[in-house]
């Protein structure tokens, strides 16, 4: 005969929470990895001007950034104080822009290549000369979508 052993009290065993930290850590790592901070380290001063009619740039993947401004203090010895262009992680001249546009195109999918927006992040104290040169180069490279980066000014 089977033996049924009856215990006095029947308590439901506590659910083991030992794996909870692992689950949470997994979540943590997921967020840490998925928030790709593909932000270049700025080598130029970049105080963008204010504007009231700014529009948010959608589709971040289709935005290529062009920074313009005075080199930061630690680079001024090597690059001077004249406004410079920064593409990705290095200083560049106006003549490098066409190659930059081409490589930006190359890195996108075929169908997205014509919808790249060039986000001009230009310091507000820069003069228009260099901006115009950039615009000319972009026109030559036939990359015509441009965003004049500016901060939203509080309206009244």
């Amino acid at each position: 005969m089977a033996k049924f052993k009856k215990e006095g009290k029947r308590e439901t065993p506590a659910i083991s929470t030992a794996s909870l930290p692992d689950i949470v850590f997994m979540l943590l790592f997921f967020f840490m990895v998925s928030t790709t901070m593909r932000e270049v380290s700025l080598m130029v001063n970049n105080g963008m001007p204010e504007a009231t009619q700014t529009v948010k740039l959608e589709k971040k993947a289709l935005v290529s950034n062009i920074y313009v401004g005075k080199p930061k203090d630690q680079f001024q010895g090597a690059y001077g104080t004249e406004p410079r262009i920064q593409l990705n992680d290095h200083f560049a001249g106006v003549e490098d822009l066409q190659a930059f546009v081409a490589s930006e195109r190359e890195s996108r999918k075929e169908e997205d290549r014509n919808s790249i927006t060039n986000n001009l992040k230009v310091d507000q104290d820069v003069t228009m000369g260099i901006v115009t040169d950039i615009k000319q180069e972009l026109r030559k490279a036939n990359s015509l979508k441009v965003n004049y980066g500016s901060r939203k000014k509080a309206t009244r």
Partner: peptide, 11 residues
């Protein structure tokens, strides 16, 4: 990113 969007004329 925000800013003023423009389309440049073709070269």
């Amino acid at each position: 990113d925000s800013g003023l969007y423009r389309r440049l004329p073709p070269y």
